[in-house]
Computed example of a mutant assay.
Amino acid sequence: MRRTLLKFLAAATLSLSAGAAVAASCGNTSAGFDAWKREFAAEAQRAGVGQRGIDALMSAGYSSYTIKVDRSQKGVKYPLDEFIRIRLGSVDGFAAQVRKRRDQNPQFFRSIEQRYGVPAGILLAIHGMETGFGRTMGNVPVVSSITTVAYDCRRASFFTPHAIAALKMVDRGMLSPSQQGAAHGELGHTQFLPGNALRYGVDGNGDGRVDFYNQFDALASTANFLRQKGWQPGQPFGQGTANFRVLNEWNAATVYQQAIALVAQKVG
């Protein structure tokens, strides 16, 4: 799952914190978390969070695991061949998995490409790299993890809008208060941060709701995200192209972008 790149979506989500007159006090240990939650509840209410979201906030626990992971991040520094070996095994083998999944739901992927212009190979490469096609979506409660990093002084300004978004998602029934995700609040099959889930989420399976733990909703939302970030339908996506640069909006590691493009090109 994605763990290394958390600064690529800030501009798209800062508006979620509009209306907050005074920010809650941050902290660097668990000691002040409960007091911060009380302060943050008022901030969240000013931003439009309802009672269900506030209840989820007040039930959240300080995630020591999230802080441990956040403190130990080192970024992606592998050369491409090593990154592929570690994350994919091989381009050919991974592409075969992607192709098999595409061929299991050809109509869905055709409809997604017709609507957003993003090929199945791109979407499924992301799906496989983020969560192993949904096998490992995280085991940390999303509300606890995202509020923990919103409280933490190191990057409170970045994560606060995502924390508010997560609480709004609880309000709207898009997220269970106890739903588990990755260490920094990334959720679902393709590991959206909550602010981006709220902004770019779409109903991919036609059931009238947006659920990032449903692979069709998650994949359609990923396609919508890429299109909104500038993806050009029908255009190439190899390194050096405009579409390749759009992949930077999803993950800022060049080797990650290269791996996505190589797999998708192999899939065809």
Rank of each mutant, 00 (worst) to 15 (best):
N28T: 13
M137Q: 09
G230K: 02
Q104R: 08
G268K: 04
D217F: 02
P236N: 03
N28E: 15
I54C: 03
Y65V: 14
N105P: 05
A163T: 00
Q97R: 05
Q180A: 12
E39Q: 10
R154P: 15
G138D: 12
P194I: 08
H162P: 11
T136I: 13
S17T: 05
R102P: 14
L5G: 10
V202G: 09
G240N: 07
A41P: 00
R87F: 05
G75Q: 09
N248F: 01
R71E: 11
A261W: 02
P177Q: 03
A156G: 04
R3D: 14
G27A: 12
K74D: 07
R135P: 15
A20P: 00
Q258I: 06
A218P: 00
R102S: 12
P236C: 04
Q45F: 02
D34F: 02
A242P: 08
V91F: 05
F8T: 13
R85M: 14
A56H: 05
G32L: 10
V267D: 01
A165E: 15
A166L: 10
A35R: 02
T66E: 08
S63N: 11
Q107H: 11
E249G: 13
F108Y: 14
M1D: 06
T29A: 05
E186T: 12
A182T: 10
Y256T: 08
P161W: 01
N28F: 01
N243V: 14
Q45C: 03
L5R: 05
Q228P: 02
T222M: 11
P106A: 12
V69A: 11
L5Y: 04
G201T: 01
A252Y: 03
L123N: 02
Q104P: 13
A18P: 01
T13I: 15
Q107F: 12
Y151S: 15
M1E: 05
A218R: 03
N248Q: 05
Q73P: 09
D171E: 12
R99C: 09
Y151C: 15
R2W: 01
E39A: 02
R227M: 10
Y256S: 07
R227K: 10
R85V: 09
Q51V: 13
L193Q: 06
H189G: 10
Y151Q: 14
K37P: 00
G93C: 11
W231T: 05
C153T: 08
N196Y: 07
K74M: 12
A197M: 05
Q235N: 03
T13F: 04
A21T: 06
K7G: 07
L88M: 14
Y65Q: 10
E249L: 04
Y256Q: 06
G128K: 04
Q257G: 07
A42D: 15
T147F: 03
S157G: 05
T136N: 14
F237S: 01
G134W: 06
A182V: 13
M1R: 01
C153F: 05
Y151P: 13
G268H: 04
A35Q: 09
H162C: 08
G208V: 15
E39G: 09
G234A: 10
E43I: 00
A95T: 03
L14T: 11
D70N: 06
I84Y: 01
A60L: 03
A252P: 07
V149C: 07
A11T: 15
M137C: 07
T254M: 02
E39R: 02
A60S: 14
R209W: 08
A223R: 03
V263A: 01
L6A: 12
L175P: 06
Q258M: 11
G204A: 14
